[in-house]
Computed example of a mutant assay.
Amino acid sequence: MIDLPLWAWALLALGALIAGLGKTAVPGASTVSVVLLASVLPARTSTAAMLLLFIVGDVFALTAYRRHADWRTLLRLAPAVIAGLLVGAAFLALAADGLVRRTIATILLVMIAITLWRRWRSRTAAGGRLAAAGYGSLAGFTTMVANSGGPVMSMYFLATRTPVKVFLGTSAWFFAIINIVKVPFLAGIGLITPQLLLLDLVLAPGVVIGALIGIRIAKRMPQQLFDRLVIVLTIVGSVYLLF
Rank of each mutant, 00 (worst) to 15 (best):
S238W: 03
A146H: 00
G210F: 07
L233A: 15
V183F: 08
L168R: 14
R220Y: 13
T193I: 09
L130Q: 13
D58R: 08
T103G: 01
L51K: 06
Q195S: 15
V207T: 05
S137L: 11
I235H: 01
L53S: 04
L86P: 02
S154H: 03
T106L: 15
V166C: 06
Q224V: 09
L12C: 12
A69S: 15
G88R: 00
L130G: 12
S148V: 00
T103M: 01
A10W: 05
V207Q: 01
T142F: 00
G190H: 08
A146V: 02
G88M: 00
V239Q: 01
V87Y: 01
D3N: 09
I213H: 05
A93Q: 09
R161H: 14
L229Q: 05
I55S: 04
L4A: 08
S154F: 01
L52A: 03
G190E: 05
K219M: 10
L109A: 02
I178Q: 11
G84H: 01
V26D: 01
A125V: 13
L116F: 10
L242N: 02
G127S: 09
S46K: 04
L36A: 15
V35G: 04
W173T: 09
M1I: 11
G190W: 08
T124A: 12
R101F: 10
S154G: 14
F141I: 08
F157N: 04
R66F: 13
M50R: 00
Q223A: 13
L198S: 14
I189K: 10
V230C: 08
I213W: 12
D97P: 06
L41H: 06
Y65H: 15
A43I: 10
Y240L: 15
G169R: 11
L62F: 11
A113H: 07
G98N: 13
A204N: 06
P79C: 13
I235M: 07
S137N: 03
A64K: 14
A218L: 10
L77F: 06
T63A: 14
W173M: 06
M111I: 00
S238H: 02
T47V: 15
G22A: 11
G57K: 02
A187P: 06
I215Y: 00
L92E: 02
F243S: 04
L199W: 03
T63N: 12
L92Q: 03
K23G: 02
R66A: 15
T45E: 14
N147T: 07
